[in-house]
Design a protein around this nucleic acid. Structure first.
Lengths: 349, 349
DNA sequence: CTGTTAGCGCTTTCAG
DNA sequence: CTGAAAGCGCTAACAG
């Protein structure tokens, strides 16, 4: 009772609702809604008036409520294996920038490489909280993805783990051409025996990069010695180990091509441990061009993947999907580019 | 008309709603809601029955709708300057893990160091979409934070930029003690002239670390030469520059304490450029112990900040705030710890 | 223990 | 061009 007039003007009992704005502006909530959604059928004067009040009150619409009534929440889900990662970070960053520009929000769902978790997350993302999703390096098989698609939930895969399934929106980097460039760079420097620390077997990126590697070698008329390819799991220690193996060969390579920066850095470590100087005794090139490539000594020559751009592109595709626009290019491949730094040089002697 | 029975069994016209579940289970929606929210007042048998149907349908509740009616969305907002960053990444990761465990989702809002953006983001986060927020290294002044608080929106600051304001939930690391440890380590090694590359002036972390640095020096009976402290902006190039300055002194330091890993790495670069060997000619220690510290050569001795743990702790505080529980310790300081690696050694001669 | 009944804040026909 | 009214899916009293 003596609770006083909390019901009065501006500082509402919580946050202003569309109804408060309507009252203040002396119009109906329908009109406010129209203004808020940029509908054309509002008198300019009315619109200005409403916007005025909206600004005064610092009002912005409750997405949950909007979602309920319109089916569109303005939020999109994003799953990715890891958040604290030099590889996924930039992708996430690019996606979040693009989303921000569209005034959309992102519901983050790290899977920590757990397939079940990813599935259940996805499942939950779909339940009205989110208009669509971006799946980065998803754990799902092509079949699972297709099933998801059949449920009518819009999503796009960024950086597919397996070969991108037909009919599913997907953005990837040009792995093969990047690998080819890297290998050719080594070849031009005069290297003839080039070892490769490939990624995990069966991964799309691994297979494609292998293709590019082989193509470059073939182009130089070099017959690939199978001993010179060793698979890894993309991580530094495995890279070190793989490099050890390569360098222990009776006829060791003079250059090593790591299929990502991690394994290349691992190779750097291995060289260091053997007292080999990079690039004088051994050239090393990486792939991805993540932050660490610029930090290690010597700075790593690496193939740049446009990670942030991949994130942005994923958003762009997804938004079109959500809006029901025709998407002609369901599959987008972004160019990669070799960045030469200090870890490559002509072979000794 | 011939649209047929989309209204029938399982595969609903979209996704099952609570009403569908109720029908299928032969109970009211209120009962389903009770089961879903783990209310005690449901007969075990009924509960099991409902859960059965829920599982069958792969149902999960629409958070938007829940938010509308209960005022709780199960989502929390998180602002941070950068997502793709060795420092913020782990914090974010820790927070997202903790949130996941509580079956809550995180709405990500990177500010890219833009104050206005952060404010508007925050403002939007508050509008019913989110139950509370975690602000990592917020741009807001103490006053702004207090204003926010007055609006009744629960939030906690993780890693405050300024000295943490009274009465605001806040988690930080023990900067001073970490800095003291690092300096003492150098002192024990025999260094007497120790340069510091401080962070940005006025930052809480800078001031506190400076305190620890001074305390350690004082403890060893060393009078601090003001020339030996140079401020930076936490980034690598600035670190390099600051180190140049320090090393150009008539009587240069034999060790440099970088107030974060970036500037310490910058110092490594500067040493390298001068042909100084680390740690033989110059010892370097960093702060934060981010990923790059382990990657550079030589590996960096650094003070570990429990970044992921800070994120988790932030969530834990926030959840208590949201649930209206009493929070006795509004201010949490997490311990830091020196990790000795290869960049520190006794001074030459 | 369970069902009924109001809304939560917003969008969207459908009438003026 | 604008308002009235009907929900979106769910929770929360309030009765039984």
């Amino acid at each position: 009772m003596a609770q006083a007039d909390t019901q009065r003007e501006p500082p509402f009992r919580g946050r202003a609702t569309i109804r408060d704005i309507a009252d203040l502006a002396g119009v109906s909530i329908a009109t406010v809604s129209r203004v808020l959604n940029d509908r054309p059928d509002v008198a300019p004067e009315t619109r200005e008036n409403v916007l005025q009040v909206v600004r005064e009150q610092g009002f912005s619409t409750n997405r949950g409520a909007r979602g309920l009534s319109s089916g569109r929440t303005g939020m999109i889900g994003l799953t990715l294996p890891l958040v604290a990662d030099a590889y996924f970070g930039p992708m996430l960053s690019g996606a979040s920038e693009a989303l921000y520009e569209r005034d959309m929000r992102i519901v983050l769902a790290p899977t920590f490489h757990d397939h079940d978790r990813e599935m259940s997350l996805l499942d939950r993302l779909m339940r009205g909280t989110t208009d669509g999703a971006i799946l980065m390096l998803p754990e799902e098989s092509a079949d699972e993805l297709r099933m998801l698609q059949r449920q009518g939930f819009p999503f796009v895969v960024v950086d597919p783990r397996e070969a991108p399934p037909e009919g599913i929106a997907c953005v990837a980097a040009m792995h093969a051409s990047g690998a080819k460039q890297a290998t050719e760079h080594l070849l031009e420097l005069g290297h003839r025996r080039i070892g490769a620390i490939a990624g995990a077997q069966g991964w799309y990126a691994t297979e494609e990069r292998l293709l590019g590697f082989r193509a470059a070698l073939a182009g130089a008329g070099i017959l690939l010695d199978p001993e010179l390819i060793v698979y890894s799991d993309w991580r530094i220690p495995q890279g070190t180990q793989a490099a050890e193996q390569l360098l222990s060969l009776p006829d060791p390579p003079t250059a090593i091509f790591g299929f990502n920066d991690n394994v290349a850095i691992g190779a750097l470590h291995a060289a260091h441990a053997r007292g080999l100087s990079v690039p004088d005794d051994l050239s090393v090139v990486g792939f991805d061009d993540t932050e660490p490539a610029k930090i290690v000594t010597p700075q790593l020559t690496s193939v740049r993947q446009p990670l942030a751009e991949m994130g942005r592109m994923g958003v762009s595709l997804l938004v079109r999907l959500i809006e029901g626009q025709r998407v002609d290019a369901l599959r987008v491949e972004l160019a990669t580019k070799l960045v030469v730094r200090d870890s490559t040089a002509p072979p000794r002697a």
